[in-house]
Write a protein that binds this DNA or RNA. Structure first.
Lengths: 201, 201
DNA sequence: ACATCAATTGACACTGTGTCAAGTAACTAA
DNA sequence: TTAGTTACTTGACACAGTGTCAATTGATGT
């Protein structure tokens, strides 16, 4: 398997990913991808039946290479819920910039494309598990802020760390990745972690 | 001026708005708008040069009718920053569902369309002033949570109450408008309003 | 020598936006 | 009455981007 340089299919996936990141997921045509991969437009269709199929395959390819799951294993080290929360923001906040272009492309068509929506929901379900875990841990430690029932806490958590919010805060407001990470940690801790009683004067 | 029933231009605007709300801003074609307004597709172009121009005109039309600014005047009644913040969420949280379809249509094309982006930014600048005002008031009262410098507080505020977050929490997580409002109030208060010392045991 | 697979070229259908030209019906003004 | 203007109609067309189809080439393996 795979002689020459690299498999054509892989070359297409790499080209797609590269262009998506470069153009932040905007205005990437099938013909652009084809020429970036050094083949004809029609040849792309020999490997991927539709644009959507290509996008989803690219997501899987990137997932495999970037290994979000492995990164999330770093969370295993945290021993209490608050640390877990911090670690999560560290991993996620540094991950987003690496997949933003592709994520944007997906986000833009998920409203009109069933398959894209399904792929997106798959990724989000994976993230949700992590959030769920963190909230559960806080709850188990009796550290979950009392105003948030667990389900709502998870939903709000997911929303706060959404890619859309990251996009707004970084590209619109000019926050750097480190700024985003530290400030998001602050927000999440203050929102979900019960205030220690000893803080009172 | 304006005999018959209503001005054709106005009929187009109404049709656009109606369709946008009905279809949540998705898949609304110029021909759909035309037939909803009871005229030919080409006639729409006699009044609005491009789709974008029509969208922006519709936003202005809706703005005029719905009168966000007037609603925001309710805020004048609040006497302290915390109340101001609550009032803001009340107004904004009840406003979003009324303009969601149109807002969605705008949001979806602002990445690729300069004019749309400008119109969007205009609306957001208006909202930003309100947020700015609230944060300023909290700060003046020495009630702004110490971890947030004013600029960052405003940016975060805007992000938290963004339409995208509303969309996620309501359509994705199934929160009702009232649930959204009360929970968002909780989040914002805990985030931006300094914890009263007397809360300690 | 033959079959197969990957890729190529070129043509075409479809959708939606925007343009253009010619025609019609109604209202206005000399 | 006639001429002009205004608002709208019909129908045709250009353009971009996706997806399809058919015929062809070139290399690989048997």
């Amino acid at each position: 398997m795979s002689s020459e340089q690299t498999d054509t299919r892989t070359r297409i996936l790499k080209a797609t990913w590269h262009l998506m990141e470069q153009r932040h997921g905007l205005g990437v045509k099938m013909s652009d991808i084809a020429s970036a991969a050094g083949i004809s437009r029609q040849a792309v269709y020999l490997h991927f039946a539709t644009r959507t199929e290509l996008m989803i395959a690219t997501v899987n390819y990137v997932d495999e290479i970037k290994g979000l799951n492995e990164r999330l294993n770093q969370l295993k080290q945290a021993r209490n819920g608050a640390e877990l929360l911090d670690a999560c923001v560290d991993v996620w906040g540094n991950y987003i910039p690496e997949i933003y272009g592709l994520a944007k492309a997906l986000m833009m068509t998920r409203d009109t494309d069933e398959a894209t929506a399904a792929a997106w929901n798959g990724s989000m379900a994976c993230l949700r598990e992590v959030c769920q875990d963190i909230i559960d841990t806080l709850d188990r430690e009796n550290q979950l802020a009392s105003e948030w029932p667990k389900t709502q806490a998870v939903e709000l958590f997911m929303t706060l760390i959404s890619i859309q919010n990251w996009e707004q805060l970084t590209t619109e407001c000019g926050w750097s990745t480190t700024q985003y990470v530290t400030r998001m940690k602050t927000l999440l801790r203050h929102t979900f972690v019960k205030r220690p009683a000893q803080l009172s004067i």
